[in-house]
């Protein structure tokens, strides 16, 4: 059975964020778009499952403005995914509409064994779409997964929670698995892979076709602000002993944090 992967295209982590003059959002002019770093772990894991004979194929899905989002889908194809589906949609959808669109496209695509995602997208940091897909498809989930073993009828996923504690889940039947860093080492696309990916036809769908609507967003973001400017740093002079002493004194008496 196939493995499906849902990916998001996000501004590269090097991006310096600029806001639109009316603070209604981020100004994306000149931004370099990349596949969300956590989604690379999902793509890699899916390809490994196919290579290990645990999946018959890898289909990658993404929701967003078609013209740019297809670039990240081609990256996934170049890494080794077999097919890709883009659901053309405006920029500012929320997690619930994106998840509904992905769930709709997944249902239309047919049978699958697992849906792999990244644990969080580094743009809005919501970490919600994976769990919402699981709810819409009424299947179990494991998020923040750093270790995954696939058996014949079930999977064992290890998820990381606070303080280094790990929860080990057994998932019966199809499930959504959201990858954390550490699950694997994503491969780079090979040159032949890139050439092959260029020729692949990416399936195009609309929000309407997958049963989702931009009018159904439940969360919008407004009033964007840059972090407050920090006052100038106070540099401490003298030798190491003097610096250490002055710092400890300042933290206690001036900053009052220890």
């Amino acid at each position: 059975m196939k493995v499906f992967v849902c990916i998001k295209q996000v501004p590269d982590t090097e991006t310096k964020i600029k806001l639109k003059p009316d603070q209604s959002g981020v100004d994306f002019t000149g931004v370099k778009w990349v596949m969300n770093p956590y989604d690379e772990f999902a793509v890699e894991e899916a390809i490994k499952l196919r290579e290990g004979g645990k999946a018959t194929g890898v289909v990658v899905f993404s929701v967003g403005p078609k013209a740019r989002v297809v670039e990240s889908l081609r990256t996934a194809l170049a890494m080794g995914a077999d097919d890709a589906v883009v659901i053309d949609a405006p920029e500012d959808l929320d997690s619930s509409v994106v998840a509904k669109a992905l769930a709709g496209a997944i249902k239309a695509e047919g049978e699958f064994r697992y849906i792999l995602t990244g644990k969080l997208a580094i743009d809005d940091n919501a970490s919600a779409v994976s769990q919402m897909i699981a709810e819409y498809l009424n299947i179990p989930q494991a998020t923040v997964v750093s270790k995954l073993e696939i058996g014949d009828t079930s999977a064992t996923a290890e998820r990381e929670v606070e303080g280094g504690t790990r929860e080990i889940l057994e998932l019966k039947g199809p499930a959504v698995i959201a990858a954390n860093k550490g699950l694997n080492m994503p491969r780079y696309a090979s040159l032949p892979g890139i050439m092959k990916a260029k020729k692949k036809v990416i399936k195009e769908l609309t929000l309407d076709a997958v049963g989702a609507s931009a009018a159904d967003v439940r969360v919008k973001y407004k009033g964007f602000q840059m972090p407050a400017e920090k006052p100038a740093v106070k540099m401490l002079g003298g030798d190491a002993a003097a610096q250490a002493h002055e710092l400890a004194t300042l933290l206690r008496n001036e900053a009052k944090v220890i």
């Binding site: 580094i122 439940r218 969360v219 407004k222 602000q225 972090p227």
Partner: peptide, 19 residues
Amino acid sequence: ARRPMYAGKCTAEVSFENS
């Protein structure tokens, strides 16, 4: 409510719609 976006590179106000 406000929350960080882009891991804190900026913040935004959350607006709940039909919720």
